[in-house]
């Protein structure tokens, strides 16, 4: 009874900072200025505009880049999580600490750091020149954007997978070996399937921020209309068309919700327990 009251400050907080702004965005997306000043009328025109070919293409492009980043994170993150889980307990927490440390630095700064490395006269090209290799133009490409995202979001992939692998009961590994499974077969038939909830969580936690990111494509992608996040940002800050920006934001949200819903259908655990579900 009393503990319920402890949640009131939080309820007030999310109402003010999440629910109200979301309602406002929704409201902005379905109205337009009326004939008189300070009057508004209902309109779906922003949605119709958001759904035209050009804007859908941006949405699709963002999806492809987010997907590529997520896939790269998974390919690097799973082996990394596996490797960490095999270390001695002390080394495990040290490696996890190393993994988390970059996250204490502002993402903007870290992205600027990558600009310095990738730019035409940057560190990478200096190294290449030193070995007499041809200069590479990496900054302001899709590759740079994906690299930036993988760099920033990789810990969100590794941590849930690492946790899921650790949670696999050592007795199950013994049981598989006992029944004749070689170490490789034990991994494929027991450890990997049981770590799927961690993979699902990892994919969700990387895919969501990648899909809606605008700082990374802005800095490393050169601020072209590369991703939907940039498009929305421009509507608010440059063009000043909050209505259209809101419609795009709603569209992005619908798209993300759909993706998450599809993803959860692959998670065997989300059916009967709350484990391994997206933490938002």
């Amino acid at each position: 009874m009393d503990t319920k009251k402890l949640s009131y400050p939080y309820l007030v907080w999310i109402t003010l900072t999440i629910l109200v702004p979301m309602l406002l965005i929704f409201l902005y997306s379905i109205i337009e200025p009326g004939p008189e000043p300070l009057t508004f009328q209902f309109s779906l025109a922003h949605y119709l505009r958001a759904l035209d070919g050009l804007h859908l293409q941006v949405l699709w492009g963002s999806f492809v880049i987010a997907l590529a980043s997520t896939a790269a994170c998974l390919l690097i993150g799973y082996p990394a999580a596996w490797f960490i889980s095999r270390l001695r307990a002390r080394s495990q927490s040290q490696v996890i600490l190393l993994l988390m440390m970059p996250m204490w630095i502002n993402m903007l700064l870290r992205s600027y750091a990558w600009m310095t490395i990738l730019s035409r006269n940057g560190i990478l090209n200096s190294v290449l020149a030193f070995f007499g290799l041809p200069e590479q133009n990496l900054l302001y490409t899709d590759f740079a954007v994906i690299l930036g995202m993988v760099y920033n979001f990789l810990p969100f992939m590794i941590l849930p997978i690492y946790t899921a692998i650790l949670k696999v009961d050592a007795n199950l590994v013994d049981a598989a070996r006992d029944l004749g499974a070689s170490p490789g077969e034990t991994f494929l038939k027991v450890i990997f399937p049981l770590s799927i909830p961690g993979i699902i969580t990892g994919i969700t936690m990387v895919f969501l921020p990648s899909m809606s990111s605008f700082v990374i494509p802005q800095l490393l992608g050169g601020g072209q209309f590369l991703m939907i996040g940039n498009l929305i940002e421009r509507q608010y800050l440059l063009t000043g068309n909050w209505h259209f920006g809101s419609a795009l934001a709603m569209l992005l949200m619908a798209f993300i919700l759909l993706s998450v819903w599809l993803m959860k259908r692959f998670d065997p655990k989300s059916m009967d327990s709350g484990e391994g579900v997206i933490p938002w």
């Binding site: 070996r177 006992d178 029944l179 499974a181 027991v190």
Partner: peptide, 19 residues
């Protein structure tokens, strides 16, 4: 190695594969 022995085990907490 364990997986090549003609021995099988019933574990204390059963250790059935939940998946």
């Amino acid at each position: 190695p364990a997986y090549k022995r003609e021995v099988n085990t019933v574990f204390q907490k059963y250790a059935l594969f939940p998946h």
